[in-house]
Design a binder for these strands. Sequence first.
DNA 1: CGCAGCCGAGAGCGCTGCTCTCGACAACGC
DNA 2: GCGTTGTCGAGAGCAGCGCTCTCGGCTGCG
Lengths: 227, 227
Amino acid sequence: MPPTVRERVRAELTAEITAAARRQLAEVGAAALSLRAVAREVGMASSAVYRYFASRDDLLTRLIIDGYDALGAAAEDADDPDAPPRERWLAVCRAVRSWGRAHPHEYALLYGSPVPGYAAPRDTVPAAARVGVVLGRILGDAARGGALPEALGGDRDPELVSDETAAVLGGEHAALDDAVRLRALLAWSSVYGTISFELFGHLVGSVTDTDRYFDLAMGELAGLVGL
Amino acid sequence: MPPTVRERVRAELTAEITAAARRQLAEVGAAALSLRAVAREVGMASSAVYRYFASRDDLLTRLIIDGYDALGAAAEDADDPDAPPRERWLAVCRAVRSWGRAHPHEYALLYGSPVPGYAAPRDTVPAAARVGVVLGRILGDAARGGALPEALGGDRDPELVSDETAAVLGGEHAALDDAVRLRALLAWSSVYGTISFELFGHLVGSVTDTDRYFDLAMGELAGLVGL
DNA sequence: CGCAGCCGAGAGCGCTGCTCTCGACAACGC
DNA sequence: GCGTTGTCGAGAGCAGCGCTCTCGGCTGCG
């Protein structure tokens, strides 16, 4: 049956609250995001917001999921399946960095210090995996196309990287070499480390041309995973 | 002239406050660190603490500097100048990870989302550089010993990595190849990314044996920089 | 039409960072 | 030795926060 008017209004108001919260987040960051300020912007009493989000952390969790989804979508959009693997890798890395530079506070919320208690709610996992899926599909396609050396000479170490993650990282090409699994995970950590260092200010004064530095670094990482 | 009684007492009280703050930080994290709670623990009125630290951010800055120093000291202690370069590299990386696992909230304060406004105070820079200096000394020693390939085949790109940073990264061996400078910086970012992914929970469910994963990953990075 | 359930508003609790004022005490010059 | 000056701790207070509870009004269902 169609949604009742009540449900529609409720959904719209929920969206309006999250939109206001996202604006607040972009302006002042997650630490200073105030539920009362969001309520003021939407134009209702702070207590009324609690009809829609049980707590400030719940609202933040909503923003985290949305952030992962937006970042994942940016990565997916940047991937052209017909391009050569190395180009695909570089394009997706650049897209992730661009998104981070455009939304520094959101990026910090996703990949910075975990703000709430210390537990990432389970709901965030699928959304968080999207970027990994994109990078993994590139590796899997490259492996299927024979562009990836099957044995890189690393130690065999089955089960170090769990099968489910390996499946993600390798797309449908589940039989990726153990060493490739390891390097793929390391490469993704390194992409994240590089972008975070730049966004969090650890590179100021060290690198003059951050664009060029990033491209060269991502090229090195592409070489590391065999692309 | 010797410090007056007043100065001595003031220094002691300052130390007592920072110690209490460090305990609070270790327990509840930077976001929940409350100046009033620190004052309660020390046993004085909250307003009195402002005689010693102008603001909560000032207190946090003190903790940041202390954290960088403690981490830097741990890295320096772990470095045995007589060991082969690759072993030195691995030992320092392990020490950084161990420190992070032992002090997760401090680590998050140093390398997570920047909490205050967005500007890392200038005072933190020298302390923050200590780990980089240690890693750089290893590379410099290796290069001086001929253990590092002079040309790795990367594009020449002078001035990408600023000279002062290159001097740090290469120890006194200032003439490190441009490609080595780039890879050294990338490697340090990757070490940070790997540790942060683990501490911030982005690897849960993906890696079964985090100790072994870390060692293998650091080995890959050592290979990347030429060790 | 009447009733149950949802919803917004307001008041209020305990907490926070921070400021101001005031009384007490130590350090210095005479 | 004594007064002056500057420092210090304590208390009260302000504005803001997350969150709870209660109450009155409105909506949708029977």
